[in-house]
Design a protein around this nucleic acid. Structure first.
Lengths: 270, 270
DNA sequence: GGTGTTGTGTGTTCCAGATTACAGAGCCGG
DNA sequence: CCGGCTCTGTAATCTGGAACACACAACACC
């Protein structure tokens, strides 16, 4: 089941039955219907919080305390982490897998706000009091996520100036990125937007060990969701890019070859 | 001179001569070419910082100190407060007038990010280190603005958890607003976007004393800049709204009559 | 090795909104 | 009160991309 399909279907059902609907999407097992759902497999400490830049200023004691308070949870591919009908006021840390944050219009069409890679921290609704925050989050791969409650965050972070500042900086960057994306959306044709989106994705993506070419693991449909365009239009531009030797394609995987070429196109207006 | 014209012209010149170009735009006097440019007219203390919600948690002493460090400056209508070639890493407080924050594409087209009313605090480039921050700010009325240097902000705010938290919350709200605007841009037709934009503007706008109708002080061109659409298309939808009795128009002024009607349209997809 | 199922390529039709090009209308200062 | 703005209305094209409709290819699971 593709991510967008999931979204549509869930949207239809979301007034009441999202959770159960989501449960049916889980591959073969339904973690949150079991009892002790936190996986205490590995005995390693700091299972979520270490290696996340945001937390480096926490004392070891605080870190340990927080970590105890945030057991990792699994989400199967296609499962919703939160939604309008299941708002969770918490801070999430993505440990494994990939998460798609998106919004849904009245007619069921969706726009992908972001696709998160491991290490990402998300959940601003914690800050804005969730009145206006109608984002959805869905796992697009089997994922592991830690959750910090609002109370924990309050206690450990907001009182800590260093971390509060770091949060402000992160949010500021997010604002800048969104503003840029907004103007791209408004003023740039699809081809240019596609090129610059690919570039942005590229430097989040893992570098291949051989060449310096980077591979982005997305289907055309997922990319279209990010671009605010249809799958067809996106496919067409991608085919064009491939013909020009800028990228190579493979089912659900795009390899960026000519970064400069794409950059040139991304600056194009017409 | 209209705001957009200004933007275009400045864009042409911005590689080197923005400041001088801007100066020529000033109505009849050029404040920043004079010597003592801070206006010490009124003897009132806290000339900028009082009445701004962000600062309520500051001690009177801090407030006074900050206030001394941030003399108000005038900007004539059409003048640039900052731009890419004149990046100012500071926090701004708008005391009087109105400021338009916008971005410019390669071809000179602009998208308005926000139109700020008195009391607004702006200047996130202070947080993001201004690499990626290529916004412009222009006065669209004669305005008075206070500026806090990065050092001052550092000293008084970021060390103060209460204020840091407040900043985070503001940024979080801004993120939510931008995400909403982005999806509107991507998924909604012009009429719906226009309606919802008018509504948003309406509740920032001053209420008239007679009816509960609110007046928005914008030209079609300015509104178009905010919508990411052409002036003509915007005019057409506005004429349509007026014909349906939702709004009334007057040169540079839009009166919202039927809030519910607009809200209905704003939820429309097709 | 079939047989669904999910990703991709393409073509055709259609339309919102950009573009271009004016014309009238309120408002300004001289 | 009159010319020159700046705003607003309207109409005639033009076009990027959406919508719809398939065909086919790769993979996944019997």
């Amino acid at each position: 089941m593709t991510a967008p399909m999931t979204a549509h279907r869930l949207n239809d059902a979301c007034s009441r039955t999202v959770l159960s609907a989501a449960s049916t999407l889980v591959k073969g097992w339904a973690p949150h219907e079991r009892e002790g759902d936190s996986l205490a497999e590995t005995g390693e400490p700091f299972s979520c919080l270490n290696a996340v830049e945001l937390f480096v200023d926490l004392s070891a004691r605080d870190l340990a305390a927080l970590d105890r308070a945030s057991p990792p949870k699994r989400f199967g591919s296609g499962e919703l982490v939160f939604s309008q009908s299941q708002p969770v006021s918490a801070l999430f840390i993505l440990k494994e897998g990939r998460i798609r944050i998106f919004r849904v219009a009245e007619d069921g069409k969706t726009l992908t706000i972001a696709i998160l890679e491991p290490g990402a921290v998300f959940g601003e609704m914690l800050l804005v009091g969730q009145q206006m925050y109608d984002n959805y989050a869905e796992a697009i791969e089997d994922s592991v996520i830690c959750q910090l409650s609002a109370a924990d965050v309050e206690e450990h972070f907001l009182s800590n100036p260093k971390i509060a500042v770091k949060i402000s900086r992160l949010l500021g960057e997010q604002v800048a990125r969104l503003e840029e994306r907004l103007t791209d959306m408004a003023l740039r044709p699809l081809t240019a937007r596609t090129a610059s989106t690919l570039l942005k994705l590229a430097d989040t993506a893992p570098r291949s060990r051989f060449s310096h070419a980077r591979a982005v693991k997305l289907t055309h449909e997922q990319l279209a969701g990010l671009l605010g365009a249809t799958r067809e239009a996106t496919s067409k531009t991608m085919a064009d890019f491939a013909a020009r030797g800028l990228i190579r394609q493979g089912r659900g995987r795009i390899t960026i070859d000519d970064v400069d070429g794409l950059r040139r196109i991304s600056r194009t207006t017409f």
